[in-house]
């Protein structure tokens, strides 16, 4: 009798688990085809209304220029790849930053160094499956993914 109860309990638990398993839609393409070029406000808030994302630039400035930096770029360039990672850079930035969106936050997963002296007139293009970075620093564009430079 005891073993029957145990079997019944196991079955109920198994059914319960199978019912609560979350639905997953795969092969989602998050790619944004044209970069967003957004001017941050005086508080360093970047508000991309077209793509519905709003965040502060200040931690990124600290990362790029060091502590207490308040030099806001005129425009911030944002592009999202098909995996959903955000690639962010700006004029005079040395790096392109790769962020992974989390619940209520952007988590930096990679800083890709592209120009020691800062990027001059950078632009991000979506060239599936990579992000293309063009700038006045180089005649040839760089191709990136969330792991770094793929081709230069």
């Amino acid at each position: 009798m005891k073993s029957v109860k145990i079997i019944f309990l196991i079955l109920v638990t198994a059914v319960g688990f199978s019912c609560t398993k979350s639905l997953v839609i795969e092969n989602v393409n998050y790619a944004q085809h044209v970069e967003s070029v957004v001017a941050p406000n005086q508080e360093g808030i970047v508000d991309d209304q077209r793509n519905n994302i709003r965040f502060t630039m200040l931690p990124l400035l600290e990362k790029e220029y060091g502590e207490n930096s308040t030099d806001l770029p005129e425009f911030v360039r944002i592009l999202r790849n098909s995996e959903g990672y955000y690639f962010i850079t700006a004029e005079d930035f040395k790096n392109v930053y790769v962020f992974e969106p989390k619940r209520g936050e952007l988590k930096l997963i990679k800083s890709i160094l592209l120009a020691e002296n800062g990027l001059e007139k950078p632009a991000l293009n979506w060239r599936a499956p990579y992000i293309e970075v063009v700038s006045f620093n180089s005649d040839t564009p760089a191709y990136l993914d969330e792991n770094g430079v793929i081709k230069k």
Partner: peptide
Amino acid sequence: PVAQVSAQNSDYELV
């Protein structure tokens, strides 16, 4: 011109 070509390769600028 090369520099300009580079700038013009921006999709954003193109649009």
